[in-house]
Design a protein around this nucleic acid. Structure first.
Lengths: 129, 129
DNA sequence: CCTTGCTTCTGTAGTCGCTACAGGATGCAT
DNA sequence: ATGCATCCTGTAGCGACTACAGAAGCAAGG
């Protein structure tokens, strides 16, 4: 059984975030020592690693909750995981598309400022009706 | 002079967000009617439109504050606007790059789930050491 | 004038996912 | 015992909103 500091180092999740995940019910309450310190077994560490990887992939907490539930062994797991993954992939692709459009608009706008001018074309455009 | 509801419709910024911007000092305090209702002139409406456009382009509030200050007429305005714009453009490009990497990792992962399996390869990978 | 329905006000709290204290207790090595 | 590191709970804050609750104001219609 391992204290939270060691678990933080081994999982890559900060102590404060581990406590946050516990409060939010993302991970179960760990065992405690006689003095009240959190003690995690290897399954607890693996679970936090899982959560970290999912967060790194941009899955929201709610999806991670669902994935963890699915990981508890059920014959439909893989197709459900695929549903969650594909929806998230779509979200990511949408976001990339949005940002790409935004980038183009911004690049055009910024290109109009190329010297010191009393009447900035960018500001004029942003103020236009 | 126009009440907040009309200004919200004409600027595209919600009533609540207008009040938020006022609280945050993004836009100046408007005049008030005898009964305390906010009244905006055309400059106030233009300013909110400006803020909306900047938000749509992803500029953070702090940058918008700076841009509004610059719009008050100063001979260095355009080069300062360019600095703010280019920095933001870099941020957007960084974010696109991050998301593109994430999308690739996610697409690979999701591709591994293609039928009902008791032992999902995705979950296994996310749990791997 | 009264009623009705809509608009507007202030203050407070919440969203998401953390992150950072403050103040106190515990654990371990010297 | 001392000193330092670790850990605890509770609270507040970040950015940019968003959504009430409860009350007051406004304008049109009867």
């Amino acid at each position: 059984m391992h204290p939270i500091g060691e678990v933080a180092r081994r999982s890559g999740v900060t102590i404060e975030t581990i406590r946050y995940y516990e409060r939010e019910g993302v991970v179960p309450l760990p065992d405690r020592s006689a003095s009240g310190r959190r003690l995690y077994d290897s399954a607890g560490i693996a679970r936090l690693r899982f959560v970290k990887r999912c967060r790194d992939l941009g899955f929201p907490i709610e999806d991670i909750r669902a994935l963890l539930a699915l990981s508890k062994g059920d014959s439909k797991a893989c197709s459900d995981v695929k549903l969650i993954g594909e929806r998230h992939l779509r979200d990511v692709r949408d976001k990339i598309a949005d940002l790409t459009r935004l980038e183009a608009a911004l690049a055009d706008l910024v290109a109009e400022c190329d010297e010191q001018r009393p009447h900035c074309p960018v500001l004029r455009q942003l103020f236009a009706d």
